[in-house]
Structure formats: C-alpha cells, structure tokens
C-alpha cells in the first residue's frame, strides 16, 4: 500500500484534462511515470511518455509496476482487469461512482492475481520526498514533508487537513494512504494499518475514518495488536441517520456504521480518538 520512488507508474486514461494536469504534477514531484494508456490514441507521446492501447501492451513494450486509473466509472472494471492481467503489482483507482458490482469483480480478480488495489474514489498515495500517485498536494511543503507519521484516510480533503496538522505540529509523514470513500474498497482500513505497522519509517499512525460501514471497527481489532500508537479522528459525528453524506459509503442506519460504534471500538483497542483534527498535533507529542 506504500508507493516507493523506484516503482514505475502507468497512467490509464492519461490524455484526459485532469489526468494530464496531475501526470505533470506527479512528474515534477519525481514519480517515475513511464507510460500511458488510451485505446484510441495508441502510438502518440503525451506528457513525454508513450501512450499504448492497453495495459498489456504497456507491460510488453515499456514495463510498469503501478497503474493509476483516470478512467470513467463504467470503464473502470475493464481497464482494471487489463492492468491485473498485464501483471500490475498495484492499482490506484481514483474514479468516483464506479458501480459496486464492478468493484467487487475487479477486487476479486486482483486478489486471485496477487495485485494490490487502492480505491476506488481515493485521492491516492503519497510518500513525501519520493513520489505520489493520484491527486494529492504532495508538492505543498505546508502539507507534506518526510517524517515518521503514517496517515490513513478515507477522504482526500480531510486527509489533506490531517497532513497539514501533522506538519504544523513539526512532524512529517512516512506515507499517506488514501483508501477511498466507497462502500467496497480494494484496501480496507486494517490492511493500510498493517502496511504502516510493518513500515520501518513509521513511528505513529493517524487514522482518519468516517461514518458508514464497519472498516473502523474491523481496523480496531488490528489496532489492539499494533506496537505503534494510533491517533484517530472519525468524521460524521453530527450527521443525521439514513442520509448519505457525500461519499457513497458515508451513511449509517440504526447503530450500524455509527460514530459511537466506531469511537468505542477504537478507544477500547487503545487508540486516542480526537474531537477535532486540530488536536492531531498535540496528540502526536512525544512520538
């Protein structure tokens, strides 16, 4: 789940407006972008890299490790399966509004092939000082700089605010893992926590969750066994029941997915749960 500077990155859907903008930002930051994919524009050069018709061709002709998908929702499953079949080690799926059925299919295929999936509906991954994959402001030194704090977040905007508070407190990040705002995700909270627990640069973890689903409760089970301290903030305490709050995954019904349930699970597991993101800095004191 942590992306490293040596990894070769393929951009699927590279010729789109947003993809072009963010490919350039990734390149400026030092991400090793090696190729792009657009089935209708194979053969051209875009952002200084070759564009292939499929991920499979990109693997044969250029080679890559990670693929980042800037692809429309109903095309994501086909694009992801193409990258998985090509032998990608990681997929970062940024697209929002991918049908859940397609997500389940592609995650199942990825698992069978040994490919890691991050997202969909994620802002991506950042390893400050090395590279980033997705659309995070990695290049803003008031938000990202190298350091010992691992950050996991369902939300991109709130994850950015969390990283800002980490830097304000005088720390930096070992890695940012945006897991995404959808109900079904390739990387769930506990898997991201495992990656940070095993990462030797990480000394403490900031976990940014939100209402809906049971990922935080499942993650709390893993927090019990972690050697590293975990500081958490869960968004949606003031949200009314039965209403989706922007993210498709952010809804609670009855007690399922509620703020209270998540907070209790994390506190019982030994995590420090904060009332506002501005408490992140003081809470990291000493780590």
């Amino acid at each position: 789940m942590i992306v490293r500077g040596h990894e070769r990155v393929l951009v699927q859907g590279i010729t789109g407006r947003q993809a072009t903008y963010w490919t350039r930002r990734m390149q400026e930051y030092g991400t090793r972008i090696v190729a792009g994919v657009n089935p209708r524009k194979a053969g051209i050069t875009h952002c200084g890299v070759p564009v292939h018709g499929t991920a499979r061709e990109a693997m044969e002709e250029t080679g890559f490790d990670v693929s980042v998908l800037f692809v429309p929702p109903l095309s994501v499953e086909v694009a992801a399966i193409d990258a998985i079949d090509a032998g990608a080690s990681k997929l970062v799926i940024l697209t929002e509004h991918v049908p859940v059925r397609d997500v389940m299919n592609l995650v199942s295929a990825a698992r069978a092939a040994g490919t890691e999936v991050v997202g969909p509906n994620t802002a991506g991954l950042v390893t400050p000082g090395e590279c980033f994959v997705g659309f995070m402001p990695a290049f803003d030194p008031s938000i990202f700089r190298p350091g010992p704090i691992g950050v996991v977040s369902r939300s991109g905007s709130l994850g950015t605010l969390a990283c800002l508070n980490v830097v304000r407190a005088g720390y930096g990040q070992s890695a940012f893992i945006g897991i995404g705002g959808d109900p079904v995700l390739g990387t769930r909270t506990h898997t991201a926590l495992e990656a940070l627990e095993q990462d030797e640069r990480t000394r403490a973890v900031v976990l940014i969750g939100e209402i809906g689903g049971d990922m935080e409760e499942e993650g709390a089970e893993y927090v019990r066994r972690m050697s590293k301290p975990v500081v958490a903030f869960i968004a949606g305490r003031a949200a009314p029941p039965d209403r989706r709050m922007g993210h498709a995954g952010a809804i609670f019904q009855g007690n399922r997915g509620s703020y209270a349930s998540k907070r209790r699970a994390l506190e019982e597991a030994g995590a420090l749960v904060l009332d506002t993101p501005s408490q992140i800095g003081p809470a990291l004191g000493g780590y």
Binding site: G156, A235, G236, A238, A239, M245, A250, P277
Partner: peptide, 27 residues
C-alpha cells in the same frame, strides 16, 4: 442536506464537509 441549525457550511469534499459540521457541533 438540510440540518436545521443557524451556521451555514460550505466546504470541499465529503470528509471535510462532515468534519466542519462536527466541529461546529463540538464547539
């Protein structure tokens, strides 16, 4: 989503918007 209070909220992103509501209520 209308919530009935007296402080309007405009923010970007679902997580940040929810958090803005939460911190208003918390304070």
């Amino acid at each position: 989503v209308e919530l009935g209070g007296d402080i309007g909220v405009l923010a970007n992103g679902a997580g940040l918007t929810m958090t803005t509501m939460d911190v208003i209520a918390h304070l």
